[in-house]
Structures are given as C-alpha cells and as structure tokens.
C-alpha cells in the first residue's frame, strides 16, 4: 500500500501550523513518454513555507502549475482548500486562483503595460467594485511593500532582473492571497539580490500570513525561507524534513543538494 508521505520523512513539525490547505496525493503527470510526476505526495499547512528542491527539469514547475490548474494532471488527487482541482468548474477555479499568488520564473510581466497596469490587471476580475482611489491606494501600498513605489509608471523593459522579480511578487500579492507559489524566484539573480528577494518573500509571508510553496534549487534561498523541504527526485517526494534534518541525512541523492553549501 502506498503511503501519503515521502520516502524519508524527518519528523515534520506540522503541529505548530494550521489545517492542511494543499493536499497532494499520488500525483501523476506525463508528457508523452516523459513521466514527470510519478507518484508525488505532499501536504502544505496554513502558515507553512515549503521549499521543493530538485534538479532542473525534474517536474517542480509542473507541480505548481498543476496546483493552479494551468496543467491538468493524469492521476492522483490534488486538493486546494478542500477542492479537487480536476473536478471544479472554470468559474470556481478562477475564484480559487484569486486566493493563490503565482510568481513566475521569468516574472511574466505584461510587456505592453506599465507597472501600474500590470498590478491593476489582477484587479480586473477580482477587484470589481473598487473605486479608482481604492485601486490607486492598493497599487501604491503593494509597490511600497516591495520597495518599488517610484517605479509605478515604468515599463517592464526598463526594469532590472531583481526589480522585475519584485514587481512580479507585488502583482501576485495585490489580491492578498492565502497561498503563494514561487517558481524559482532567485534564478538568474546575483547572490545579493537573490538574498534580498528571499528576505522579501519572508517579510511578505509575515505581513500577509500566507502559506508558500517555493520551487528552487538555490540552497541559500531554501535555508532562509523554508520551514520544511521536499526533495523531488524521479517524480516522487523522495525526502522531506527541515533544512537541518535533510542536511544530516546520509542518503547520497539528498546529500548532493547540500554539498554546495
């Protein structure tokens, strides 16, 4: 019988967190003959930051795209706030997406819009009924939180990599989501900016009381942000535990991630 946990579970400190908000159970996803997720299981609780570690191309991004319904999964169960993602209607999915912030690897800012328009875009559907003054205040508050209030009228092409990440983060925070999904938030950044982004993610988690899944292979980011880590190898949750617990593990596959530190 399959277990709903990782192969190597290191005493997860789940009691101090709230109820489960994302429950992934035996998730399977293939693209033709490429079996990306083979039998992945993970539970995220309220207020928890979980970093999913794994090599490039192992299916980490596919996992969080399944969570927001961007990629349909083949088998298994994926529940967000108790809703099975593959069974809900488009309208319900859209309502659910309002509670989830997604920071893309490439930031995915809309090139043809200013920073202000990028932030306001998320309010088109979920911010109806807000006056112009309220929208402006919300945009300015969110930009202030990421320290880029001065860039409100700037086009994305004029921003540096780090600034784009911050705007991407601000855009996903504007609806005050309960869950944040980060797809390699520090990739392509210099170590100092990467650390700033990691600190900002922590600051925002405290401010907005979010739960997060952070997809990364940046161990410094993982060390700074994770309450718990899941090591994805061959499409399964190979090992799970706190940073220190996993670092002490003797398994060579897990240890390989910590060698660079």
């Amino acid at each position: 019988m399959k277990e709903d946990v990782a192969y190597h579970v290191m005493a997860p400190e789940q009691k101090k967190y709230g109820d489960p908000i994302i429950e992934i159970s035996h998730l399977v996803k293939s693209f033709g003959d490429n079996h990306v997720l083979r039998d992945y299981s993970l539970t995220i609780r309220k207020g928890e930051n979980v970093v999913v570690l794994g090599k490039s191309g192992c299916g980490k991004s596919v996992l969080i795209k399944c969570i927001v319904g961007l990629i349909p999964y083949d088998k298994g169960s994926l529940k967000v706030f108790g809703n099975e993602i593959s069974e809900i209607q488009q309208q319900e999915l859209d309502e659910l997406r309002a509670k989830i912030g997604f920071v893309f690897q490439s930031s995915a800012l809309y090139d043809s819009m200013t920073v202000r328009e990028n932030l306001e875009f998320a309010l088109r559907r979920h911010g109806k009924g807000k006056s112009r003054t309220e929208v402006n205040a919300l945009v300015e508050e969110t930009l202030d939180n990421v320290g880029l209030l001065h860039a409100v009228e700037v086009m994305p092409a004029e921003l540096s990599g780090g600034m784009r990440k911050r705007i991407g983060l601000a855009r996903s925070l504007i609806l005050k989501p309960e869950i944040m999904l980060y797809d390699e938030p520090t990739t392509g950044l210099d170590p100092i900016t990467a650390k700033e982004i990691s600190n900002l993610m922590l600051k925002m988690q405290l401010k907005y009381n979010t739960s997060s899944i952070i997809i990364s292979h940046d161990m410094h980011c993982a060390q700074l942000t994770a309450n718990r880590l899941s090591v994805m190898i061959d499409g399964i949750n190979y090992a799970e535990g706190t940073f220190d617990e996993l670092r002490k593990m003797n398994d060579p596959k897990v240890h390989a991630f910590f060698e660079i530190l």
């Binding site: 490439s106 090139d111 088109r124």
Partner: peptide
C-alpha cells in the same frame, strides 16, 4: 510575434492565473 513572445515568457499563463 507578440503572442509568441507572450507565450514564451509565460505572460499568457500569468493572465490565466489572474482569472482573466
């Protein structure tokens, strides 16, 4: 070219995630 670049840079996915 515009839609192709939006697709490649995940802007279309970002739009979908935002409920549009």
């Amino acid at each position: 070219a515009e839609l192709g670049s939006m697709k490649v840079t995940e802007q279309i996915d970002a739009m979908e995630v935002s409920g549009t």
